[in-house]
Amino acid sequence: MLIVIGIPIAIIAVIALIVLAPGWTRAGRYRPGDSWDHEPVLIGGGGSKAVPALDGAQQPAQLTAGSSDAGTGDDTVGGISVRW
């Protein structure tokens, strides 16, 4: 009885544990489509650091928003905007 039922159940339990365990350890992982409710993070060569406050007075007024995969067209800065 133990061999016929116990061993298969034990094998199934071990396999289930192997499959599900990585998911448990990554419970906080971002999944596309989820909302993002974490605090903003700024990471540089020295690790994470405080995110600078951005009020209206600090925002450079002369900079305009890019909106596509193309360049920004701004003379002072480069870079791109992408959505995935």
Partner: peptide, 20 residues
């Protein structure tokens, strides 16, 4: 520098962050 968080005004916010 890498930033992960909300960008309410998309590139405008990113430009402002870069400026800081």
């Amino acid at each position: 520098e890498t930033f992960v968080g909300r960008l309410p005004e998309d590139r405008k916010t990113a430009l402002a962050l870069h400026g800081q």
